[in-house]
């Protein structure tokens, strides 16, 4: 039993390493994970929508390495040109609690792949699938919908607002898109 403290210490150290887990083999651009997700809480019948998550999302969004990579790709793929550092611009903000097309990481991955009708381009085939997951994990960190320990600290660039890590834990409110106008059929 004298090894117990050592075993315990090793267990603690090993579990702390999950934050730093990384895959060394990148997905080919064409491969695509398939998560069974719904966009709405409503479904036919009283049981709620049928969903099945593989657990991949958790792996990405609780991992500091993936989030840090995502932060880099977020700039490389010009996401910041429209969404700024989370506050938005021509695209909606990503640090707030409004998620027109679902705020879970699986929804965000799907939004990046498919695009969305009011201006979000489709990036399918343009970004390797694992990098899409990393970007989505970073986007989740903007509203601090990831563990504090995994969220990025302040970066070296212009201070745009509080660092992701310092933001209070976020909320996700799905939906809320307002149709643009009173259009009449012609």
């Amino acid at each position: 039993m004298k090894h117990l403290p050592l075993i315990l210490l090793s267990a603690i150290l090993l579990s702390a390493c999950e934050r730093e887990d990384r895959e060394y083999r990148s997905n080919p651009v064409t491969a695509e994970t398939e998560e069974k997700i719904a966009l709405v809480p409503l479904s036919a019948g009283p049981s709620g929508p049928t969903e099945h998550r593989s657990g991949l999302g958790k792996e990405y969004e609780e991992n500091a390495y993936h989030i840090a990579q995502g932060k880099k790709f977020y700039v490389w793929f010009n996401c910041n040109g429209c969404h700024a550092n989370g506050g938005g611009g021509s695209g909606p903000p990503l640090m707030d609690d409004r998620w027109f097309y679902g705020g879970q990481i699986e929804n965000i991955v799907q939004t990046i792949r498919e695009g969305r009708p009011n201006g979000m381009p489709s990036f399918r085939g343009k970004i390797p699938d694992d990098q899409i997951w990393q970007i989505a994990a970073y986007v989740r960190s903007m509203g601090r919908n990831v563990p504090k320990a995994a969220a990025p600290g302040r970066n070296d660039d212009m201070h745009s607002g509080p660092a992701e890590q310092r933001r209070p834990p976020g909320e996700v409110i799905d939906g809320g898109q307002v149709p643009p106008a009173a259009q009449m059929p012609q």
Binding site: A84, N85, G86, G87, P92, P93, D96, R98, G161
Partner: peptide, 20 residues
Amino acid sequence: GSIVSGDLDPRDGTAALGFV
């Protein structure tokens, strides 16, 4: 005025290309 018309988040000073 896109901070209002686009519902932008005022916590990010660089939003709307820095106008926010």
